[in-house]
Design a protein around this nucleic acid. Structure first.
Lengths: 206, 206
DNA sequence: GCACAATAATGAACGGTGTTCAATAGCCAT
DNA sequence: ATGGCTATTGAACACCGTTCATTATTGTGC
């Protein structure tokens, strides 16, 4: 038996999350199991259930860490110049690069099917923080904050879709163009269309 | 014991796929199991393994059926008018509508993580057929078939990304715009940008 | 009509999974 | 030193995918 009180609950939590990340990195999300995590941190399954509600909870917390890591990754690669298009390119490329560099972790964000969409608010906030980076880059293009948010959602969902295609299908179906070319096509056309549209309509359309 | 030869292999295959679809519709992909399928068709697990390689194989064949159904769904809702933008809108809305109407089946297409990307060619062909509809709608916008294919891939990956956001996050993060508004924003800006870009560069850019 | 060979179908067995909770073992205060 | 408190355990339960020796049923040849 592990010595009583050798680790605090919080220490065990961190150890478990570390172990889970290692397992996911090596075997992917399907390879993650309570028994593997428990034995990796030299505790038993029972102990895990004192710290996590269940495997879903553990999964969500691993994903939360991934969102934090992704946020920092994107922030470190931001283009702080004045050209919004350049800034968006930089973000999109950084996003695709993260998905490539940390494919299992990144995949797990979406493979873990959220039943009944019960993502807690703190988790949605972490997601929102990532979207916030996109909004910040887009802000110069629109005076309206709500409109900026909408544009950011649409654009980022699209970049994500391309990223999925790259990672999951290895671009078999993408006519051999790479993800960078695809995001460039998407972003440049979308932003050009956006600017053109604004020329002929008020900046805050109803 | 089921009477020997009561059903042909092919009949058992179809019964199993029907049963699997019902289970997925009711409980989602995670609820699918060999034992449930077997008991639904009043055979035992062993028999399933005479007809399918394993559960992955069965899953892939369910997905193949979904791709066929999706193809027919989209084809039935095509806009055969002359306006490519209208045609793309119609396809995008039909795609989102299918995802809404058949959420578990649709989700399963992506929840089933293809390890090592071992999708067989016949499966990729079915996927390609769906993309083909998008290409056909886009064809009037570009003389170059390869370019059309690339545009279709980018645009459809993007529509898919928006669709994912709608289904998985219930648009919590999309600033309450609905998926139709998002796809309209995406498609209209993207296509406007595309047309504008072509004004200033040769129709077949190098 | 009967025995037999061929084979369709079975289901127990194996090693895995998430989850629970009575039992236990280690620490602290007395 | 002892007893109580509780952190930790791990066996138990109900599931899972997969295999394959066994069984049951059939059509065939006599």
């Amino acid at each position: 038996m592990a010595r009583r009180g050798e680790h605090s609950r919080e220490e065990i939590r961190q150890m478990a999350l570390d172990a889970a990340e290692t397992i996911v990195a090596r075997e992917g999300y399907p390879g993650l199991s309570t028994r593997k995590v428990a034995s990796a941190i030299r505790y038993t399954v029972g102990t895990l259930y004192l710290v996590f509600e269940n495997l879903d909870d553990l999964t969500l917390q691993v994903n939360a860490r991934t969102l934090d890591a992704l946020y920092e990754w994107l922030r470190a690669r931001q283009d702080k110049g004045n050209d919004p298009e350049q800034a968006i390119f930089a973000l999109a490329n950084a996003y695709v690069a993260y998905a490539e560099a940390e494919t299992p972790r990144w995949s797990m964000l979406f493979e873990y099917a959220v039943q009944e969409n019960a993502q807690p608010e703190w988790y949605l906030n972490k997601l929102g923080r990532v979207f916030g980076l996109v909004e910040a880059a887009l802000a110069p293009l629109s005076a309206d904050a709500l409109e900026t948010q909408r544009i950011a959602r649409v654009l980022w969902a699209s970049v994500h879709g391309i990223c999925l295609l790259k990672i999951r299908q290895r671009l078999t179906l993408a006519g051999n163009q790479d993800a960078e070319a695809m995001t460039r096509m998407l972003v440049s056309h979308f932003l050009r269309g956006l600017r053109q549209g604004q020329k002929f309509s008020p900046p805050n359309p109803v």
